[in-house]
């Protein structure tokens, strides 16, 4: 939490594929830091950003570190609001079953494991974005 106890709604909008450019990796680095400040953090995956959560990523061939397992740790940082742009998935011939399952444990319900993923339309997404205090787009 900030020194004066302010909690703001931070949304990270991930728009780029995971390798190709550094945006996805460096976005994740800010996300994890923000969680340490006890802010209300959510993540959106839209456009090519939906590829960031693809299952079975193999990066040996391109000589890059595979950081896709980091997303599954988001629940441990109490980041459990993950929004996936439905149209972006569909435009790429993908469905939720192609993506990692991201979960969090609900302390109030005996640590029941719950899904962090919300499949939303662009119209819904724009409403959710309107309700944020800080939107950071990578």
């Amino acid at each position: 939490m900030s020194e004066d106890g302010v909690v703001k709604k931070f949304m990270y909008v991930n728009r780029k594929s995971p390798y190709g450019t550094i945006y996805a990796l460096e976005s994740l680095e800010v996300v994890l830091i923000t969680a340490a400040f006890d802010q209300d953090v959510s993540l959106t995956f839209t456009d090519d950003g939906v590829y960031q959560l693809m299952k079975g990523q193999q990066t040996e061939g391109i000589g890059m570190k595979n950081f896709s397992s980091t997303y599954s740790a988001l629940g441990d940082y109490e980041i459990n609001k993950i929004f996936i742009d439905k149209e972006s998935l569909e435009e790429r011939g993908l469905s939720l079953s192609d993506l990692q399952e991201l979960v969090w444990e609900d302390e109030d319900e005996d640590y029941a494991e719950k899904s962090s993923i919300n499949l939303v339309s662009r119209a819904e997404l724009s409403e959710i974005m309107n309700n944020q205090d800080v939107v950071l787009s990578f």
Binding site: S2, V6, K8, F10, Y23, E29, V30, I33, T34, A36, F37, Q39, D133, V134, L136, S137
Partner: peptide
């Protein structure tokens, strides 16, 4: 300095404006 300075700017400022791609 660290990324915490960015988060702090998000918390303390009225608006955080991004310039990028």
């Amino acid at each position: 300095s660290g990324l915490g300075q960015l988060v702090e700017a998000g918390i303390q400022a009225d608006r955080l404006i991004t310039f990028g791609d």
